[in-house]
Design a protein around this nucleic acid. Sequence first.
DNA 1: AGCACGATTAACT
DNA 2: GTTAATCGTGCTC
Length: 207
Amino acid sequence: MSALTRLERGFFVQDTLTITRKLLGQCLVRIEKGQPRLAGFIIETEAYIGTEDLGCHARAGRTKRNSSMWGPPGHLYVYFTYGMHWMLNIVTEQESVPAATLIRALLPYEGIEVMLTRRRNRPRLELTNGPAKLCQALNIDSQFDGYDICMPDSNIFIERYPQVPEKMIITGPRVGLYTVPEPWKSIPWGFRVHSDFYQQFITALPE
DNA sequence: AGCACGATTAACT
DNA sequence: GTTAATCGTGCTC
């Protein structure tokens, strides 16, 4: 087994759609003091790109809330919505260009006992199968808005795994943009891994 | 100062 | 399939 490397700054300097696709199959890791490592494979992502994209928070210009999206790549944009939920994004593109990838779902891999506690013993496949759920499971909130995941001692980072084959990636519209006008509402900037691909990892999960 | 809404979730019929 | 929960944010007055 070869040593795993972390995604470095250069990865997040590619164009946003490329990054959003290539993040599928990579492993998001969360380190907390006094806790076992929490980790999950990224299986669903969405791209939000620039002020033109009317589905993107950047459409209204830079505000206190969305400021991180204008920041340097490889940092996090974490925001609060629906009065109770946190959402995890990774900032892409060069500084001053607002764009990010939303992490919508993970396949739990390490630290499942801790995730079960945080997620009130929900079924294993429902631990991190939504953008707010994974933030709850990994204990990610406002304290990580603007956080740099490329620092050597970062408490959140992504480990490099082999790319998911193109044929195993399902492309479709982004979820939840009910009031967003076309073409942005339907533009196919959502990506997920076909369940055929990760089924093998589910059956391999420890009880 | 007031208000409508949201890149969601869980529980319900 | 529907809907309540719950509150920070940004917009309007």
